Amino acid sequence: MEELPASIQLIKEWSIWLVGIQTTAIGLIAGLYDKGGFKFFSNKLLALAIFFFTISIAISSWTLAALPDMVQRVEVANISVHDMNAFNKLMVPLWVFTSIQHWAFIFGLFSFVWSASVKLIRNK
């Protein structure tokens, strides 16, 4: 049972890092837009990146909100943290939230990088 609180701590730290990285990326996109620096990026793909980053941030917030309830239940449960329901009355396992969180981050990151590469390829 000792590793369960440690795994919850790792999920918490990773969710916080993801939110920080994605908030910085959205701030960078907004800063570029404000200064007219979009000449090296595809606007549609940047909008897609913001969409995926926002989904991941929302799911990360939901995951972080579920962790205190999970810590209270972890002592009586005899299952993996990822198999536990995110909230006691919500019948969705935590792994669903963390999977969506990570895939949305990856899609947002690819959209961000792809937006620059598409624009650079078209300008050659």
Rank of each mutant, 00 (worst) to 15 (best):
V81Y: 08
S15Y: 03
A77C: 08
F41S: 06
F110G: 14
K39E: 09
D34L: 00
T54A: 15
K119F: 07
I106S: 09
F110N: 12
S80F: 13
S15C: 07
G36P: 04
P68W: 11
A30R: 01
G108K: 03
K35R: 09
V19G: 06
S117P: 02
I106D: 03
F53Q: 13
I29E: 05
S111I: 04
L18H: 04
S99Y: 08
T24A: 15
N85Q: 13
V96P: 05
F110R: 03
V76L: 11
F38S: 03
F97K: 11
G108Y: 03
V92T: 14
T98K: 13
L90W: 10
A30N: 05
L94S: 04
K39R: 15
K35V: 03
L94K: 06
T23C: 09
D83A: 13
F97G: 11
A77S: 15
S60G: 05
V81W: 09
M70H: 13
V113E: 07
N43A: 05
I26R: 06
G20S: 10
I26L: 11
A25H: 11
N88D: 14
S15V: 05
S61A: 11
L28S: 10
S15D: 03
L90H: 08
I79E: 13
S117H: 01
G36T: 04
S115M: 01
M70E: 00
S80L: 08
G27N: 09
N88P: 13
R73A: 12
A58T: 15
